[in-house]
């Protein structure tokens, strides 16, 4: 059964007003720089053609540096596979709907190119629903939200240092292992004193 979404949103007006916006291939998401995001969102929220008054979901995505292969047609008309170096980046993804006009969905992505010191612009001045969700993104991805009024860790404890949702996160070897039958865990458990029994592995 196809899911009947609300009225789809025409992105033309916002692209007209903000020529620097890009539309992501495949997903149809708007991509913006952190510097511009507040203006864009304000436009989306207040312009009568959009009235996207409901920020549903905020999350982050972490992309490590990869090599992407893409098929391209070269000048001679042959298709060849081109390797493209994708620099590391982070995205903050926002999903907007309109409650008053029953419109949706507009996906907006803040693209952060500096993955080592990711700084994004907070939407909290415009949307209260960004408050906890951006805190969560800060907590799990380590993205610093400029303009957030209360940027603290949300789920992890204050003293925690790493950012667990990053793709290169390595879990610390500091917790108590229970001797489960799994070889991998068992091996780890053996390095911790007093544990490592159990498991019927010979």
């Amino acid at each position: 059964m196809p899911v009947s979404d609300e009225t789809p949103v025409d992105l033309a007006p916002v692209l007209e007003s903000f020529p620097s916006l890009e539309v992501e291939k495949g997903t149809g998401a708007l991509i913006t720089q952190p510097a511009l995001v507040l203006e864009v969102v304000q436009f989306l929220r207040d312009d009568p053609r959009y009235r996207l008054d409901y920020l549903s979901n905020v999350t982050g995505i972490d992309y490590l540096a990869t090599v992407r292969k893409e098929k391209r047609v070269n000048e001679e008309g042959k298709t060849e596979i081109v390797k493209i170096d994708e620099p590391p980046r982070m995205d903050v993804v926002y999903h907007f709907y309109s409650m008053s006009e029953k419109r949706g969905l507009v996906t907006l992505k803040q693209r952060i190119t500096d993955r080592d010191r990711p700084v994004a612009t907070s939407l909290m001045p415009l949307f209260r629903s960004a408050e906890f969700q951006e805190r969560e993104v800060y907590d799990l991805f380590g993205i610093d939200f400029q303009g957030h009024l209360d940027l603290r860790r949300l789920l992890m404890w204050e003293e925690f240092e790493d950012f667990p949702m990053r793709r290169d996160y390595v879990e610390p070897d500091d917790y108590e292992y229970e001797p489960t039958p799994h070889g991998e865990v068992l091996e780890k458990a053996k390095t911790h004193a007093g544990l490592g029994e159990g498991g019927s592995e010979e």
């Binding site: 008054d53 409901y54 920020l55 549903s56 409650m99 008053s100 949307f127 209260r128 629903s129 408050e131």
Partner: peptide, 8 residues
């Protein structure tokens, strides 16, 4: 108004 704005 607050409810909508806060994503309730």
């Amino acid at each position: 108004e607050l409810a909508i704005n806060a994503g309730i």
